[in-house]
């Protein structure tokens, strides 16, 4: 793992193209359902191309939350549109963002274990909700959270985040079918953007959630997957941090705090920091 950006292209993990090829096959195989589909999936996962890369942590790249491969494929395609591969470096898929989200959805956060989930639940049928926007993530200024027009419904659904994700992803597919006559993973990138924008603008009815809320959650978790410590399954090989020139956790930045010029440091992850 050097800082040379050329290394990104030599990275042995799944490129977007390889990934789409594989998942396309898996999805195709599962159409028949049941045992055969399952066997086919197993066989595909034994392809040497995928398994050789265990030294880069790819042995951890398997679904632990999404039971249906199709849901995961939609997620992968959507995150790649939100955070695409470009000349500055890898996109969401190469960074492992879909696996990051998959893992997050089975944590205490994904099942809302530390949230107040007692009834009665108010159900919003409109799309004015914006409860997942983060002030630090917003595009317009430091306190964008307060820019949401009132009244702002809060998180009031009975559904957990993991349930919201499954519902939302399947609705992405429904809208793709309705608007473009094909599954979300089969339509063009521009068409995928159009579907995502419909959710972002709250134009899709998603009862109890609000399509805008789902979109904001998808956006936020995609960025988290690109930039959280690699221990969570995203930010593969700290490539997200390398693009950002973010050095990672350190004991001290006392030597940098007064320096006028930008000081570029090598990346260090939690694993390095804890001294493993």
């Amino acid at each position: 793992m050097a800082d040379n950006p050329n290394d990104l292209h030599e990275h042995k993990g799944m490129s977007r193209r390889t990934f789409m090829k594989n998942t396309g096959l898996v999805a195709g195989g599962v159409v028949g359902g049941g045992l055969i589909g399952g066997l086919l999936t197993n066989q595909l996962q034994q392809k040497p191309e995928v398994q050789t890369a265990t030294d880069n942590g790819q042995i951890q790249d398997a679904r632990v939350f999404f039971s249906r491969g199709q849901d995961f494929d939609i997620l992968a395609a959507a995150t790649e549109r939100i955070y695409p591969k470009d000349d500055s470096g890898p996109g969401a898929i190469e960074l492992g963002v879909p696996y990051f989200i998959d893992k997050q959805l089975s944590t205490e956060w994904g099942v809302n274990a530390k949230e107040y989930m007692k009834g009665p639940f108010a159900v919003y049928t409109t799309n004015t909700g914006n409860h997942n926007i983060t002030k630090d993530q917003n595009k317009q200024g430091p306190n964008a959270e307060t820019q949401v027009p009132a009244p702002t419904p809060r998180y009031q659904t009975k559904m957990t985040r993991s349930e919201i994700f499954v519902t939302g992803l399947r609705e992405l597919d429904n809208v793709a079918q309705k608007e473009f006559g094909a599954s979300f993973v089969k339509i063009t990138g521009e068409q995928q953007d159009e579907v995502l924008r419909m959710f972002e603008d709250g134009k899709v009815e998603l009862k109890g959630i609000g399509s805008k809320n789902f979109f904001n959650m998808l956006l936020q978790t995609t960025l988290e997957g690109a930039y959280a410590d690699p221990v969570y399954g995203g930010n593969k090989n700290m490539m997200g941090w390398k693009m950002k020139e973010y050095p990672g956790p350190r004991a001290s930045y006392a030597a940098q705090i007064e320096v006028e010029e930008f000081v570029k440091l090598d990346q260090q992850s939690l694993r390095n920091y804890q001294g493993h």
Partner: peptide, 8 residues
């Protein structure tokens, strides 16, 4: 209404 999440 309850403020349900730790984000809020």
């Amino acid at each position: 209404l309850p403020v349900r999440t730790r984000k809020e």
